[in-house]
Every structure is written in C-alpha cells, then in structure tokens.
C-alpha cells in the first residue's frame, strides 16, 4: 500500500516475463508491428514485458513499406517473428438484422 495525496493505492511491481508471445497483424522485417482494431488490446504491453518476445503475424512486409508514423510497437521489443496461417475465429458472433437499420 502506498499513500498518494491522502489516498491509499496498491503499488505493484512491474511484470518481467521470460517469454512473451503476441499476435499482430503486420510486421516489417525489423520487427516493427501493427495491430488491427481491438486485437491490439494488451498485446503491446505484453510484448514490452518479455525478455524475449515472439510475435506471430499475418504478414511480413519489407522494411520501409510501413509508414513509421503508423507503427504501434517498435521492433526493439520484438525478437522473433512467425508468419502463421490464420483461421480467424469469432468467439461470440453477435449481429443485427438488416431491417432494423
């Protein structure tokens, strides 16, 4: 417990993982990553806490083909890249009917 300005907070140590495994959308060959929509979630923080980070991506593109302004996670945090084959599943498919629109 630590008191900041009269309020009690729980102060926890940061997590350092031996290995972090994340999933991204695109990587360039230097490990710069882009995630897609809400699939970003806790992937960047998880990647950053790993001593070794393995990123599985849908596509590896040559360096220079991602605008540096659009990189979500710099390659310094990424040590291995795997280009996987992805069958992208949906856990809870929720839809609305056309006539409601």
């Amino acid at each position: 417990m630590k008191n900041f300005k009269g309020k009690e907070f729980i102060l926890e140590e940061g997590i350092f993982a031996d290995l972090s495994i994340v999933k991204a959308w695109k990587a360039d060959d230097t490990g710069n990553l882009i995630f897609r929509k809400t699939a970003r979630n806790f992937n960047p923080p998880a990647a950053m806490c790993g001593k070794i980070c393995v990123a599985e991506v849908e596509e590896i593109v040559p360096r220079g083909s991602i605008d540096p302004d659009n990189i979500h996670l710099p390659g310094i945090y990424v040590h291995r890249l795997i280009q996987g084959e992805h069958e992208k599943r949906i856990e809870q498919r929720t839809v609305r009917k056309r006539e409601e629109a």
Binding site: K37, I90, E91, V95
Partner: peptide, 16 residues
C-alpha cells in the same frame, strides 16, 4: 450486419 463480422473487432465481452 450478418456477414460483416470482423474477428479483430470485438468488445470487452468478446461480442462482434
């Protein structure tokens, strides 16, 4: 709409 679900676009309850 049906057919327009995106697996990368879900809420905190995992709904599309």
């Amino acid at each position: 709409f049906e057919g327009e679900e995106d697996p990368d676009l879900i809420n905190a309850g995992k709904q599309t």
